[in-house]
Design a protein around this nucleic acid. Structure first.
Length: 343
DNA sequence: AAACCTTCCAACCGCCTTCAG
DNA sequence: CCTGAAGGCGGTTGGAAGGTT
């Protein structure tokens, strides 16, 4: 079996830009038939055009159709395209059905030439519609030739979480355990209680969102990078255009939960090990823990996450975790942690 | 003024789906 | 059910137009 050769491959038919005469012939032919095309294959001959049927169909649907709206896209149209793209992806023809008078080709072109760049400038990934991690923001700024803002001074927990976000694709449970282990190792050599709380909350928050978005609670990998990105931006807010999109409601809720947790950090810092701070941490964790049974965690993560917070605060020796890797021999973490925590 | 670069979009390409025979 | 013609779709390209050096 196989696809029959397209008539476009016939060297005798005309290709390239359409002349006014060709446009007129095509329009008049279709109008003569009451707007009904019938077979595109047979149309060129009937209309006296030396074009392939496919080319005629494209010219009609993308340019000559009388109901096509011309001119710039309005702000409303642009917002609608972005919202629809967030929900549908690159399904341009489906998107086009929601914009009267706009063709899929026109929307696709407008997306690629305008909206995509606009979103990148806003720090939003045009594919996932989530905030870009910091390293990609820098790359985009450099590529676009824009002025780069000086690096922000991050709090220890924000720096650590930002580093976590830059890990990129985490596709195995082992790597996730690796990350948590390194976080906790780093924590205990510095401001123990504060970042310990962040790590513990990170795991809990991860579990909560994982449970909310997948039926397989044993698999925590798919949402892990999202969690890292979210945690890295302590003031993370969903772009306005996504606020009304149902599929993002869960993320928004998780972001709000995280923001409320992070804002308690100064309290935790100033009263490390106090009953009050421990209570706040435990409250935040327990809500998430109720969503995912503890046994669904990988064993190593559970061992670290379920440890009482005051134990972390009072530790004199680094927390002992399964020896999955060693911080000192991991160049990535060595660089990150040296620059942020002066190991 | 000329050469070069960038942007934009109409048109094309090829794969996939649908449907009639 | 099978086959192949035709339509539909999304990704890509090429060249015109405008901008920059």
């Amino acid at each position: 079996m196989g696809r029959s050769p397209c008539c476009c491959h016939d060297g005798s038919v005309r290709r390239g830009p359409w002349s006014d005469e060709e446009d007129t012939a095509l329009v008049e032919h279709i109008q003569r038939h009451g707007g009904h095309v019938g077979s595109w294959r047979s149309l060129p001959k009937a209309a006296g055009l030396n074009r392939c049927g496919k080319s005629c169909r494209l010219r009609w649907t993308n340019y000559l159709r009388p109901d096509i709206k011309r001119g710039n896209f309005s702000d409303d149209e642009e917002g609608l395209i972005i919202r629809l793209h967030a929900a549908l992806g690159n399904r341009w023809s489906t998107i086009a059905t929601h914009l009267e008078g706009r063709t899929d080709n026109e929307i696709k072109n407008y997306w690629n030439t305008h909206i995509k760049k606009k979103l990148l400038r806003m720090g939003v990934d045009p594919v996932t519609h989530q905030r870009l991690p910091p390293d990609l923001l820098l790359l985009d700024g450099a590529a676009a030739g824009h002025h780069l803002a000086p690096p922000a001074v991050l709090s220890p927990e924000a720096a650590l979480l930002s580093a976590a976000a830059s890990l990129g694709s985490l596709d195995t449970t082992l790597r996730q355990v690796h990350l948590l282990q390194n976080l906790l190792n780093a924590i205990t050599s510095n401001d123990g209680v504060v970042v310990a709380a962040a790590a513990r909350l990170m795991a809990s928050n991860l579990a909560a969102t994982t449970n909310a978005t997948t039926t397989n609670s044993n698999s925590i990998a798919p949402n892990f990078q999202e969690q890292m990105n979210m945690l890295a931006h302590t003031n993370y807010q969903l772009p306005d255009y996504l606020r009304d999109t149902p599929s993002f409601a869960g993320q928004d809720m998780a972001a709000q939960q995280l923001n409320s947790v992070i804002t308690t950090s100064p309290v935790l810092r100033s009263s490390a090990g106090s009953a009050e701070s421990n209570q706040q941490i435990d409250q935040s964790c327990s809500a998430a823990d109720q969503l995912v049974p503890a046994e669904t965690y990988p064993q190593e993560v559970a061992a670290a996450v379920d440890r009482p917070v005051q134990d972390l605060a009072n530790l004199e020796e680094p927390l002992e975790l399964p020896n999955l890797c060693s911080l000192e021999f991991d160049p990535f973490w060595k660089d990150i942690l040296e620059s942020n925590f002066s190991l």
